[in-house]
Design a protein around this nucleic acid. Structure first.
Lengths: 159, 159
DNA sequence: GGCAGATAGTTTAAGCATAAACTTTCTCGA
DNA sequence: TCGAGAAAGTTTATGCTTAAACTATCTGCC
């Protein structure tokens, strides 16, 4: 299902949205793999954890990464095996465990983050600031629209 | 990495693009699963094949779905096992095989397509036509930008 | 205190996706 | 004509992802 022309605007829009996102994701994935031999989910996990110096629970990490908890189990296992994160049982709840960046994990993230930022900026380099802002705005509207479709009610919007 | 506020516009834009697309994809995936017990890749394959009455090669299908050929092998195997597609060796090239919809596959796609269309339209229901067109336009620009980033040159643009 | 139900996380089964190595077949030029 | 290299698919290894079933622990209420 590639960009057609006879379909409804919404269909073409969806295909273009999906196509653009996938193209960018593929490019970023390739850069991460080539330069740092890592993946988007691993980078995302480190990014989330970098904002929580005291760590967070597996459940919190799964919420922020917007994936299921079962997913996090394996991801954190692999990151821990590579020494990038540390886990300990939560002091107040023996069901829960707190995961946080190790020193090495923080160092690695600090090294990768500016490159990632640059790669993202490069992808949008041919767009003017006005175009970037217009796109940002319209994507906000799209997000609202999806929320309304899902819940029947819009959600509080910061941006 | 959820929508921040202190980051560069490009970063926030990327996160919002990824988040919006993923939210829509999750919604469509859930609908397809619930109503038709199928998946996006399977639906996409049927959609591509529905436009080629005489079928196409595995390689052509992989190009149109924008995934690797190795991926297609398994996907077509599963669709064939369910009787939705048929494969035969290409008459002029014994390396290649032609895959096309079976009668059942065509019937199934014809049944699903209008629902899929409706679900997509529902997701964008809270946006005006002007907004939809503005978003479509800006995504076209984004796609150009990614192409330029990748190849150094823009690509012919229909829409 | 103790039990019912909720919550945190893990496991399992299945599918999607990639890259890289591989097999088979084809093509083209010397 | 035949051989080198290209092209079509497949296989393999690895990782991401989900939904659903499961274990262990906690919480609140009687």
């Amino acid at each position: 299902m590639t960009d057609g022309e006879s379909d409804a605007l919404q269909i073409r829009l969806w295909l273009r949205l999906l196509g653009s996102t996938n193209a960018m994701e593929a490019s970023l994935r390739a850069s991460l793999q080539e330069r740092f031999a890592t993946t988007m989910p691993r980078f995302d996990a480190l990014a989330q954890l970098s904002r929580a110096p005291d760590g967070m629970t597996m459940g919190q990490l799964s919420e922020r990464m917007m994936v299921t908890k079962g997913n996090i189990t394996g991801l954190v296992e692999r990151l821990a095996a590579d020494g990038l994160v540390e886990r300990r049982v939560a002091p107040d709840d023996r069901r829960a465990s707190i995961v946080r960046l190790s020193g090495e994990g923080r160092r690695r993230f600090t090294e990768m983050a500016p490159h990632m930022r640059q790669w993202i900026e490069d992808l949008f380099a041919a767009m003017s600031r006005d175009e970037l802002e217009a796109l940002y705005q319209m994507l906000g509207r799209a997000r609202q629209s999806v929320q309304i479709a899902k819940t029947g009610q819009p959600v509080f919007e910061e941006g």
